[in-house]
């Protein structure tokens, strides 16, 4: 089966006054039809920049895709003109942003903002767009949709606004939805509501999804496959259960162990020493080597590639490769 989206060796660099920042440096992954892919990483790992690159929403002067392809249904989005991209954005690929408080325009009604995509892409008139907006609001679980559709965003709570954002994303029945930390700004009980809604949406349609988050708990609940990013690179990719239960890369292992868990009691948490390297002081070898407890001299000098360590499981670590080789040798 052909993937819906295939990102190949994507490099997005930012050109700042203090030099070039390689935020995304050679990232590849695919999203299949109907699949939910999680992209996990800490701040500065390049996960949001990857999303903005796919959507062609990078700040135009500073951020540039310097290499790689973004194939969406065999069309390279990175080569499209602004005009052609506009036909895809919000229509075939939609995005849900992190901040429901700031990503709605306070000056327009809810209906107007949901309807914008409908009028633009589906060529609906005002009344049709409003009627469809009401249906969408009902679909995402907003009661009194007929009234809310004429309200302004400030009248809604954070959870309601995030529902509106989801309704907007669903408006044109997109083939792919990119959700960038959709529940991070929400309270736990509201987060549970939104995650339930996202799961329901997935069940009802064949929409594919990229879920970008730092929260492995969220990944565990909604994703099928996960890409773990660190310092602008993919360091591990596998099915959700494999990543969470038998991770291969030392960074993924450390990340999972640092989470305090409700179901266990420990005196001390394991943690990853040090901090994410800043772009101007990026080490030459493995980007994680300085924080890695099992790093060797080779890790300091040479950057590992992504090695296959199991079926559909790849890891950017020399040691993971050796373990795998040892297993196949015996």
């Amino acid at each position: 089966m052909k993937p819906l989206l295939s990102v190949q060796n994507l490099k997005t660099h930012f050109f700042t006054d203090n030099g070039v920042v390689p935020s995304v440096d050679g990232v590849s992954f695919t999203v299949n039809v109907g699949e939910t892919l999680g992209i996990v990483g800490e701040s500065g790992s390049g996960k949001s920049v990857t999303a903005l690159s796919i959507m062609q929403l990078l700040p135009s002067r500073k951020g540039k895709i310097v290499d790689g392809k973004i194939l969406f249904q065999d069309v390279d989005l990175s080569k499209l003109s602004d005009k052609k991209m506009r036909r895809i954005r919000g229509n075939e690929i939609a995005m849900i942003f992190q901040e429901p408080m700031t990503s709605l325009n306070p000056g327009y009604t809810i209906g107007n903002q949901i309807g914008e995509a409908l009028r633009l892409h589906m060529k609906m008139n005002r009344n049709e767009a409003e009627q469809r907006s009401i249906d969408l609001l009902k679909e995402v679980g907003i009661s009194r949709a007929e009234k809310i559709v004429r309200d302004y965003p400030h009248r809604l709570s954070g959870g309601m606004r995030q529902r509106v954002m989801i309704a907007m994303a669903l408006a044109c029945n997109p083939k792919l939805i990119i959700a960038d930390e959709p529940t991070t700004a929400l309270d736990v009980t509201i987060q549970a509501q939104i995650l339930e809604l996202i799961q329901k949406m997935k069940k009802d349609s064949s929409t594919s999804m990229i879920m970008i988050t730092h929260d492995l708990g969220v990944v565990s609940e909604v994703c099928e496959r996960v890409v773990v990013m660190y310092a602008g690179r993919v360091v591990e990719e596998a099915s959700v259960r494999t990543v969470l239960e038998s991770p291969s890369h030392p960074y993924t292992k450390g990340l999972i162990r640092s989470i305090p868990r409700l179901e266990q009691d420990v005196e001390w948490l394991e943690s990853i020493p040090g901090n994410v390297p800043i772009p101007s002081e990026m080490p030459t070898g493995c980007k994680f080597a300085s924080r890695c407890e099992i790093a060797t001299d080779q890790c300091m000098e040479e950057e590992p590639e992504l090695y296959e360590v199991g079926p559909g499981h790849i890891s950017r670590c020399f040691l993971a490769r050796e373990v795998k080789n040892a297993i196949t040798a015996t």
């Binding site: 709570s157 736990v188 009980t189 987060q191 549970a192 259960r241 999972i256 868990r261 409700l262």
Partner: peptide, 25 residues
């Protein structure tokens, strides 16, 4: 009870019945 069940967990073996509260604060 709702708060505890709402927290997303990375552990699937510990599947709890999730209580999803209606409405907002």
């Amino acid at each position: 009870q709702a708060l505890l069940s709402a927290a997303p967990s990375i552990n699937r073996t510990n599947e709890r019945e999730r209580i999803v509260l209606m409405g907002d604060l």
